[in-house]
Simulated assay, not measured.
Amino acid sequence: MKLQDLASVRSGLVLSRKQAKEPSEYRYPLINLRCIQQEGTIQLKEADIYEAKEPLKEEYLSQSGDIIVRLTAPYTAVLIDETTSGMVVSSNFVVIRVEDKSLLPEYLFWLLNTEKIKRKIYENATSNMLGAVNARFLADFELALLSVEDQRKIAQFNLLAKRERQLLRMLADEKEKYYAGVLNQAYKRAKKGK
């Protein structure tokens, strides 16, 4: 079954079409390439502010359950949740909005980030310098559907594993700060002792 039979697949907004020429009251957070992390998350502090000349339609804004896929390498897919909904999605990305109950967005998110699927995307990328893939490739993407229950199990395990990796990274960062603090204190004490 093709992805387009189960979901809408379209490119993001061409920013110049709706962009205000001067500061505007219609300000939106913008998902840019810097926001998308290799592990499939959005780094909100990297988001830009997009000033539109008019209120944007819902179709141009991320919604919880959407999957956003980079059109250039590394073709990372991210799953939109409550914290990342309402953001402008630029034409650097494809927005996949699942419309059929037989496909879970969380499962599709996992599937699109597997090595096998990423390899297929690389093989179908254009040969220009950017190596961009087009939305049509993703719309025509063939997938064999598992049962919803099997999709749910895979999706839940994937999200749990992602959360664990995220917590481990945070722990490692905190440990580095702790070690640096202890070493600095030891150095200061030793220096005073001279």
Rank of each mutant, 00 (worst) to 15 (best):
S24T: 12
K153L: 10
R152G: 05
R10C: 02
I80V: 15
E176W: 00
K194H: 11
Q185I: 03
Q37V: 08
N124L: 02
G131S: 06
F141R: 11
C35Q: 07
L167F: 01
A139T: 02
T114H: 06
L6H: 03
Y26D: 00
K118H: 04
E46F: 08
K116M: 01
T114N: 05
A144V: 11
K192L: 13
A125C: 09
A20L: 02
S8A: 06
D81M: 00
K192A: 13
R17K: 15
L79N: 04
I49E: 10
K120W: 03
F137S: 09
E22P: 04
L108E: 09
L171P: 02
P105W: 07
S24K: 09
G193D: 14
L112E: 07
C35H: 06
D140A: 13
Y178S: 12
L111P: 00
R70F: 02
K153H: 03
S24I: 09
L183R: 12
A125Y: 04
S90P: 01
M129C: 05
T41M: 08
Q19K: 14
F109Q: 00
M170E: 15
M170N: 14
E51W: 06
T84K: 00
K194G: 13
E59Y: 09
E46A: 14
L103R: 01
S62L: 05
Y28W: 04
R119S: 08
E176D: 15
P29Y: 04
V98C: 09
G86H: 03
S62A: 15
K116Q: 11
P105I: 04
A161T: 03
Y28M: 07
L171C: 03
F137C: 10
S64R: 13
L6G: 07
L56R: 07
M170L: 14
V133N: 04
A77F: 02
